[in-house]
Structure formats: structure tokens, C-alpha cells
């Protein structure tokens, strides 16, 4: 997994709430068997019309707006557990998603792919949208080490939460599976002592 320590970038604002993973990547694009290429279909039905032509009013199609940070309304990533949603966002080029609230499974999927979900207060989120509407070149700085998000040039910042374990993983580029594989003996001991496994297994 890619390491992440700090990032400063322009942002792509998407002030819509309850963006579900079916909007992020519709089910009909889940038929690939590799992790790559989902970025082409990120927000497919908001981004393209039925003739596959870009919809001019959608934010990803605006030539003056781009960046490595996606900022979205509350309850981002609700719905299906498809990790393809995190893959699509990451594959498109985003490294950070900011919202005032994330769905649980999406948050885990993002973290497992080095995509940082940064949860801010609703007030802070509203302020970002407000500033972005005035300045398309607005930049945000995300510092994972200090767990701080700063709106550059506006002078506002906020701390964000992340578990110590996940933070260490992201800063060093470790993934969970490496850690779990190192626990094999503990897992085998658990299996031998689990009362429940004894009951349900022959």
C-alpha cells in the first residue's frame, strides 16, 4: 500500500448528502476481476448521459476544477460494501475524501486502499463548501501525523480522528493482512480453545 503522511491539494466539492456506493460506481461496472480501471466509471451516471457524453454541469466535467481531495456531503459511501467504490475514487486520482460522516464499510475499504477518509464537523464542512464556491482554486492541507486539516489561506483548521493502529499502517504503507499473517500461532491457539468451534464442528 502507498504511504501517506501529508497532502496539500486543490479540491473537488460535491455538496450532496447520502452519496451511496451505487452512485460512486454503478453495479453494471462491477464485472471486472482486477482492481484497476474503475476510475473511468467513477460517478458514471452523474458524469455521463445515456449517450456517454459528459454532463457539463457535473463537477468532474468542469475544466477549472480538479484536485486530489474529494469533499462530499454527510453519510458518504452508504449502501453496498463494494470495495470497487474506494478503488474507483483512488483510481481516478483522489487520495483523500472529506465528509462530515462516513458509512462504516466504506471507511474500512478506503483505509485498506490508502485512501484517507477525513471526518470533519458539519460546520467545518459547510465552511469548506462556502469557501470553495467563492474560490475554485481553494487548497486544503491534510496532515496525518498531526491529524490536522487546514483550509489554506482561510486560516481555519480542525483535528480529525483516526485509530493509532490505522495511522501507523498508513504512514508506513502496511496493510492488515501482513499483520494478521504474523498472528498465525495465536489464531491456531484460539481455534483449539474455542468452545463454540467444538460444538458446531464434527
Amino acid at each position: 500500500m502507498e504511504k501517506f503522511i501529508t497532502l496539500q491539494s486543490t479540491i473537488v466539492p460535491l455538496p450532496i448528502e447520502d452519496i451511496d456506493t451505487d452512485q460512486i460506481i454503478p453495479a453494471r461496472f462491477l464485472k471486472a476481476t482486477s482492481r484497476e480501471g474503475f476510475g473511468n466509471n467513477l460517478f458514471r451516471d452523474w458524469r455521463y448521459d445515456e449517450n456517454n457524453q459528459p454532463k457539463a454541469d457535473f463537477v468532474l466535467n468542469k475544466s477549472n476544477i480538479s484536485g486530489k481531495i474529494l469533499v462530499a456531503g454527510k453519510n458518504f459511501g452508504c449502501g453496498s460494501s463494494r470495495e470497487h467504490a474506494a478503488w474507483a475514487i483512488h483510481d481516478y486520482g483522489f487520495k483523500v475524501v472529506i465528509s462530515s460522516f462516513f458509512a462504516d464499510i466504506f471507511k474500512n475499504n478506503a483505509l485498506n486502499n490508502g485512501l484517507i477518509p477525513v471526518q470533519v464537523s458539519q460546520e467545518f464542512l459547510n465552511r469548506i463548501f462556502e469557501e470553495a464556491s467563492k474560490n475554485v482554486g481553494l487548497e486544503i492541507n491534510v496532515n496525518l501525523e498531526t491529524q490536522t486539516i487546514t483550509v489554506v489561506g482561510v486560516g481555519i483548521s480542525e483535528k480529525f480522528e483516526i485509530s493509532e493502529y490505522k495511522k501507523t499502517c498508513l504512514i508506513n504503507g502496511y496493510d492488515d493482512i501482513d499483520y494478521l499473517l504474523s498472528l498465525k500461532e495465536k489464531i491456531e491457539t484460539y481455534e483449539k480453545t474455542s468452545k463454540y468451534l467444538k460444538i458446531v464442528n464434527e
Binding site: R35, S81, R82, E83, H84, A86, I105, N108, N109, N112, N113, D175, D176, I177, L180, L181, L183, K184, I187
Partner: peptide
């Protein structure tokens, strides 16, 4: 998610 599917497969 699929990364977690892999974790369960492996461990």
C-alpha cells in the same frame, strides 16, 4: 470489502 475477503481467506 474485498481486501477483507482476502484477510479472511488468508487467516
Amino acid at each position: 470489502g474485498t481486501s477483507e475477503v482476502e484477510q479472511v481467506f488468508a487467516t
